[in-house]
Nucleic acid binder design. Sequence first.
RNA 1: AGCGGGAUGGGAUAGCCAGGAGAUUCCGCCGGGCUCAUAACCCGGAGAUCGGUAGUUCAAAUCUACCUCCCGCUACCA
Length: 749
Amino acid sequence: MSHEDFPTEQHAVVTCGLPYANGDLHVGHLRTYVGGDVFARALRKLGQRTAFVSGSDMHGTPVAVNAEKEGVDPETFALRWHEKYEETFPRFRVEFDNYGHTHDETNAELTREIVRTLDERGYVYEKDIMVAYDPEEDQYLPDRYVEGTCPYCGAKARGDECDEGCQRHLEPGEVVDPVSTITGNPAEYRERTHKFFRVSELQEYLQGFIDRLEGTANARNQPREWIEGELQDWCITRDMDWGIDYPEGSVAPEEQRDGDGDSAERSSADHSSGRSPREETVDGEDDLVLYVWVDAPIEYVSSTKQYTERVGSDVYDWEAVWKGEDVSESDADSGARPTPSGGEIVHVIGRDIIQHHTVFWPAMLRAAGYNEPRAVMASGFVTLGGKGFSTSRNRAVWADEYLDEGFDPDLLRYYIATNGGFQQDVDFSWEKFQERVNGELVGTVGNFVYRSLLFAHRNYEGAPAGVEGVSDGVRERIEGAVADFGEAVNDYSVREAGGAAVRLAQFGNEYIQRNEPWKLVDDEPEAAARVIYDCVQIAKAVAVLFEPIAPGACERLWEDLNEDGSVHEVGLDAALEPPAERFDEPTELFEKIPDERVEELNEKLEARVAEATAADEEGDEAEDAEATANDEEAGTDDLEPLADQRISFEEFQALDLRVGEILDAEGIEGADKLAKLTVDIGLEERQIVAGIKQLHDLDELVGERVIVVANLERAELFGVESNGMLLAAGEQADVLTTRGDAVPGTKVR
RNA sequence: AGCGGGAUGGGAUAGCCAGGAGAUUCCGCCGGGCUCAUAACCCGGAGAUCGGUAGUUCAAAUCUACCUCCCGCUACCA
């Protein structure tokens, strides 16, 4: 192991992947934040000085697009979500020392500073690239404003990644046959000058880095393919208004801020025209904004900085943590490991953003002279009934929803933190939730501390006096649990950190059961007192060890134990310090979840998912209706231009068009739009797949005359063979039919 | 079809990265105990040749190759 075990002398910072200010939080998101919170608390228990920070990710095209849809400016839109998150996290006892956002001044300033450093050190160069551009709307189309075909695998791809095919990250200008996602217009490529970060020069460094990176295995393995293959330089600018301006040396920061304000005003006044990407100005002045993945991770640093600004650098020094000893310019791209003088940086993220944290981000840090992350913990996803969450279909358990049901946040924390390995996907169901709460939290932990403290209170009004201290066996057992806890933290296993406490409580139950103090009280009062003293000690240790997972419950337990101070602040030593000799009747730490409750929750969930799916469909229809209306009003404006290219009569004759009659029509399961049709085309019956499921009452189509391209190559869609193509007009799939009574099979010409 | 993740007693999970006592924990099942405790708790038991095949090794759930099956995301106007 190339790193010292926790706790170390250095300060640590634990960060959580920034939530993207674009929608509600659900239990899946919470997995990462709870994981980070548990880990940060656990580090503190070990005695490691730790800052726990995060912030909202405000920039990027999806925010801009969705703000436009709502007719507000991106800042207003993103801030609204930011405030929501800021308020939600503490309700799950995810307590950041600082929670900022990427659009605040601290981050804007630090981002410009870091980028300027990269620039000065020669890590940035300019390159003219072809950028997708919508000539009709006169705007550039960065990232998700454009989609087209992946140049590597041929699948349909978004502008920034081949999300449906090979999963490759796509650089601007790479996507083939680009189309604007805003207008649907085919886009053309125009040459623009952009900034590139020489990631390729840091390849040797990154190879060393990935080998010494700690955390979960997936974070270390997934980026290998990139780091050990050929690293591409990274385009770090975009043609947009929304974001942090590229820090041109000649432009003073103040002016840039003004620029931001301007753009916000402009886009809010201008939203109806639906444009937010940078419009080219008359003089063609480059108004480049930094790519969102540049300023987003810098927020980790900015947020730490804000924390220091609040508490003072004598309490926590962000610069010592993040900067440490700067690597000299000439050394940066060597594989040499930086002097380990900085802090322990631990990133807790979802497994979908591993590459950003193990390639681009450490490269930036290194090149700018910052300290490298010690560990990346990448969590698996949360599934629902074995299937993935689908926010669009409302197939999810939302954070608010959970709280509204009145459940203690600790229950969910326990469930998602310990139900499986951190990098493993965990399944959520109310049944399993109930099982673990009732069995482990109530039956094992809650029951043990309650029976112990109640017995102690009734017979001794607290921990029995006159006992010399814990018995050796129990002491060893507690020490063992403390050791397990420490090991778990060093293994980055939040699951095991929780397990140590639960197993200790389990031991407590065995211990009290074996010694039966209730039988001893009368005949052997001293023996009884010793047993109960031991039990109270175990309960106290449980409070200390379980605090990272269940901070609320442990706070109550700490009070029940009549302990001074805060259970959140005590270290592991407290586990073996003598318990109080006086305390009141204890409370029940956790409550059982009755079966009826689970049934009710399941019904609710199912009903909502069904309803939302239906509403989704209606929504689509409404949108479609709107689109139709627009089509009519818009007249010729929205029509595709006529093809310039003329074809020969022979080429036309190559099409075998036939009249057909629909004999049967049914939807294809799993597909939103595809329908399977059986069509009689005179000489034979054909099975044809057509994308008309939502646009037609399928039953009404039966008997309808249609025009079919009979000699189109066969294709398979959703595993269903399509042997021909049904002709239809426009977005609404207005199906072509015959005016007279041409019989099926008649050739069309 | 592509990418990713899995396959361990009835169900759910750990262990595999750093091979070595026929294997963890939870739920369920069977039998017993206890009554301090939120019908909680404790003890004992049945039950897996760790997906298949072939290798490497003195030794493989753990390493290598191939295969099968499952799941997730994608798949959509042919």
